[in-house]
């Protein structure tokens, strides 16, 4: 028992070291808040209240699949990871690539014929499908800016905010035959 606790503590320390953005206050089951900012471009980083979400989720496996050592929710995952398969690192970005569809990413998938998780989502897709999927089902906030505010670069990208096009007298519907 004591050994297991030690490993858990060791794991926690490792995660603290390896994830400089991961936060400071730790509840019994992982971090209190996590700053999700590695992809921030058009939007600000997300301050994710991990502690709050552990209270909402029925199991860590809801988000962490099999990596926390608990039985996975998805029966397709359970075909191999029936009792859960503990991973050394459980942060989303430890498994979900932030360079999805890059040449390296595609080569890695193609170079390993035994790889089962060929369609594994990239980090951005994993965040949004998981967060938005659950928020939609449970009635949580689903607007883009409910989780991350858009910055000026984002406004320009979307032609929104101060970059909104001036309204035209008549709407064009060109492009037909």
């Amino acid at each position: 028992m004591g050994g297991r606790k030690k490993t858990l503590l060791g794991m926690a320390a490792l995660m603290l070291l390896t994830a400089p953005l991961a936060a400071q206050s730790w509840a019994a089951e992982g971090p209190g808040t996590v700053e999700l900012g590695s992809l921030a471009n058009h939007y600000s980083a997300v301050t994710f209240d991990h502690a709050m979400h552990t209270g909402v989720a029925a199991s860590c496996a809801e988000c962490h699949h099999h990596t926390t050592g608990l039985a996975p929710i998805d029966p397709n995952c359970a075909r191999c990871h029936k009792a859960g398969d503990k991973a050394n690192r459980v942060a989303c970005k430890s498994c979900h690539s932030d360079k999805r569809f890059s040449a390296e990413d595609l080569a890695k998938i193609e170079g390993n014929p035994l790889l089962h998780h060929k369609g594994k989502l990239g980090l951005k897709g994993a965040y949004h499908q998981k967060c938005l999927g659950c928020h939609t089902a449970m009635g949580g906030p689903t607007g883009c800016q409910d989780c991350h505010t858009r910055n000026d670069k984002g406004d320009a990208f979307f032609h929104s905010g101060k970059y909104t096009p001036a309204p035209k007298a008549s709407a064009e519907h060109g492009g037909g035959h």
Binding site: F101, L106, E110, G122, G125, L132
Partner: peptide, 12 residues
């Protein structure tokens, strides 16, 4: 953001 689209070789 949702990775609605997967890019790869057509046969894959």
């Amino acid at each position: 953001p949702q990775e609605v689209m997967t890019f790869g070789k057509r046969k894959d």
